[in-house]
Amino acid sequence: MSDTPFGTALSAISRRRVIQSSMLGAALLATTGLYGPAQAQGKLKVAAIYTVPVEQQWVSRIHKAANAAAERGDIEYVFSENVSNSDYERVMREYSEAGHDLIIGEVFGVEDAARQVARDYPETAYLMGSSFKPQDDTPNFSVFDNYIQDASYLTGIIAGAMSETKNIGMVGGFPIPEVNRLMNAFMAGVREMAPDAKFQVAFIGSWFDPPKAKETAFAQIDAGADVLYAERFGVSDAAKERDILAIGNVIDTQADYPDTVVASALWHFEPTLDAAIEKVKAGTFKAEDYGVYSFMKEGGSSLAPLGTFEGKVPPDAMKLVEEREAAIKAGEYTVEIDDSEPKSN
């Protein structure tokens, strides 16, 4: 995946074109009688609103799942990327006015405005990434988050075994629950193999700033880290340049960093989106927390194949990884969900 965002002007033009096309589609559906309750007879109209480029890790997984649903004929899918928080409400309203059945996205910075839109369009279903829970005053507004703490914990076990200095660098975007729980689970995994490990934790204050993430990672390497937790793009580049290891998050980037990324925790948004599509078609969509669909036992997360590092991780660590992975999938082992902000020690 590319780290380069599309230009703001181009994105704005593309967004206008998508919205205009969507409004025309809604009008056609209305005249043919397919719009509304009869949606179960045809494809759902799904729109997505992203505040970052679709290349960004987290959003790329939502985009991938939506494209898969479109390719198999379940939905018609359009999207807008690089939408600023100040513009988010307007775009939500435009998609809602255009007659989309389901609108997905991430509203971490615009929670109140997004819920007001949902109240204004009660016939539209909204499935939004959020740090908050479903609320009674927005029965058509469901939330999700990437609860991939199971896979993050397993990558921590591997990191703890692979580190020689037992000094781990961690670079995140913002200290919000969605990020915190993954970092804390990773740290718990590291401590399985290195109880006295040292952690350097930093947040760059951005969801997509590879140069800043890279600079922060360099500082951690200079302070002794020999394994980096790459919650943001840019961290693995620093690890590659300094010839140390990195742990991936949400997507598998080992093909781009074959000698650097030893393991990754993958998020699969397909179970989340598929559940929402099914409920919208059945007319049973309501305010719910879809976070559970990201759990490993639900197929929402996994440990990426080790690829070039197959056979290079200490056997005792891999034995523990295999045992815990099986127990997690069987519901016999639970990785703690800790949303508190992780700290350096």
Rank of each mutant, 00 (worst) to 15 (best):
N180L: 05
L182E: 08
A185H: 01
F186N: 06
M187A: 10
A188F: 00
V190H: 02
E192C: 00
E192D: 06
P195V: 05
P195F: 00
D196W: 04
K198W: 00
K198L: 04
F199D: 02
A202Q: 09
I204D: 04
I204H: 12
I204Y: 08
G205D: 08
W207I: 01
F208A: 02
P211K: 06
P211R: 05
K212Q: 13
A213Y: 09
K214E: 15
E215I: 00
T216L: 03
F218L: 11
Q220G: 06
Q220E: 13
D222M: 12
A223M: 12
A223R: 12
A223V: 13
G224E: 08
G224F: 11
A225F: 08
Y229G: 00
E231S: 06
R232K: 08
F233H: 10
F233E: 15
V235I: 07
D237H: 10
D237M: 11
D237E: 11
A238T: 12
A238E: 07
A238I: 13
A239H: 11
E241C: 10
R242V: 02
D243F: 14
L245A: 03
I247G: 08
G248V: 01
N249C: 14
V250I: 15
V250F: 07
I251A: 12
T253N: 05
Q254Y: 10
A255G: 15
A255D: 15
D256I: 01
Y257Q: 11
P258T: 12
D259R: 14
V261G: 01
V261L: 05
V261P: 00
V262H: 03
S264L: 11
S264F: 09
A265T: 06
L266A: 10
H268K: 10
F269D: 03
E270Y: 14
P271K: 13
T272P: 06
L273M: 12
D274S: 13
D274H: 03
D274W: 04
A275T: 06
A276T: 07
A276N: 08
A276W: 05
A276L: 05
I277S: 10
E278W: 02
A282T: 10
F285D: 11
K286H: 07
K286Q: 10
D289H: 09
Y290I: 10
Y290W: 13
Y293I: 02
Y293W: 15
F295G: 00
F295S: 09
M296H: 10
